[in-house]
């Protein structure tokens, strides 16, 4: 028996509407330009918001001081922070600190990130790996790093290895956790489909699991980058003569809140740069990933 479903005239028009609009939008003379302009406005509007919101916060910060809502002792003004940068630049501390800290964070990220990635994949793919590593790493990740500093001094000494060990540990856990969960979270149906098409275990890992888990892995990498920078404050407590963490600790010891905040700003800028860099990496690695949003 055949069922014929007649489409009401209104419904027909409604079904056609999107098609017509798409055709009009793509035409060279007409709304194509409007769309392009909208996209440009959206792009620059986005950047304006990204830059404008922090700028507004800084203006509000300065106004709060001007209106005596707070005092310079409690919260040094942005102008004082800029003076602190001039001081740090003048005595060479800033030029010394940034490369030293980036080197330490980079080395720790490389070691800890690599270890986290490998262990995460191993534990995610094989039950044995999960049984060996997961419980132990889940326990260790809750250990507060500040409590580890004296222990690391005893175990690794007061030279670079103890700093590197601390940053490595800080970078390892976020990448491990995200990789492990991303690999474990791959849709079983995809794997079954792969098997149906005759893919072997390694091929499934390479062609299905790894690409599907990549967004999670990159999120882990993003966290690992941030954590390796944040751990500098702890790592550079011990036998450091340069570094962003050292600058902050030394400023704390010498009652210089302006330099402390200047150091925090450096972290903020590095955070933005990491975010910018990681967006580029994600675009390169995940070209198929759709932008999800409602506006």
């Amino acid at each position: 028996m055949t069922t014929i479903t007649a489409i009401a005239p209104d419904e027909k028009a409604a079904a056609k509407a999107p098609l017509n609009r798409a055709l009009i939008d793509l035409s060279p003379n007409g709304r194509g330009r409007v769309v392009a302009m909208r996209q440009r406005i959206r792009f620059w509007g986005g950047w304006t918001l990204r830059v404008g919101v922090p700028m507004l916060l800084i203006v509000f910060w300065q106004l709060a001081l001007n209106w005596h809502w707070t005092s310079e002792d409690t919260l040094p003004s942005p102008k004082t922070i800029v003076e602190a940068y001039k001081y740090l630049w003048g005595n060479g501390s800033l030029q010394d600190a940034i490369p030293v800290s980036l080197r330490r964070a980079g080395e720790g990220l490389l070691l800890g990130g690599s270890a986290g990635l490998v262990i995460g994949i191993f534990a995610g793919l094989w039950k044995l790996g999960e049984e060996i590593f997961d419980a132990t790493l889940q326990m260790l990740r809750t250990v507060p790093f500040i409590a580890l500093v004296p222990l690391f001094v005893t175990w690794f000494g007061i030279e670079e290895p103890s700093k590197l060990a601390l940053i490595t540990a800080a970078a390892l856990f976020p990448l491990y956790l995200n990789t492990f969960h991303a690999v474990k979270g791959v849709d079983q149906k995809l794997i079954e489909a792969g098997k149906t098409f005759g893919l072997t275990g390694f091929q499934i890992a390479r062609r299905i699991i790894f690409p599907t888990a990549l967004p999670g892995i990159l999120t882990g990498l993003r966290f690992a980058c941030s954590f390796s920078l944040l751990s500098l404050v702890l790592a550079e407590q011990v036998n450091a003569t340069a570094g962003i963490g050292y600058l902050i600790i030394n400023a704390q010891n010498n009652q210089r809140p302006d330099i402390v905040i200047a150091g925090i700003w450096i972290y903020a800028v590095l955070g933005i740069l990491i975010d910018f860099f990681m967006r580029g990496v994600e675009r390169l690695a995940l070209p198929w990933r759709a932008r999800v949003g409602i506006g």
């Binding site: 010394d96 490369p99 030293v100 980036l102 080197r103 330490r104 964070a105 980079g106 080395e107 990220l109 490389l110 990130g113 030279e159 670079e160 700093k163 990498l221 550079e236 036998n239 450091a240 003569t241 340069a242 570094g243 860099f277 990496v281």
Partner: peptide, 17 residues
């Protein structure tokens, strides 16, 4: 990413003495 980390690692030799 690895290269960036290595470049950062090679960025300076100064440090903690």
């Amino acid at each position: 990413v690895a290269l960036a980390a290595v470049v950062a690692a090679c960025g300076s030799s100064g440090g903690s003495t």
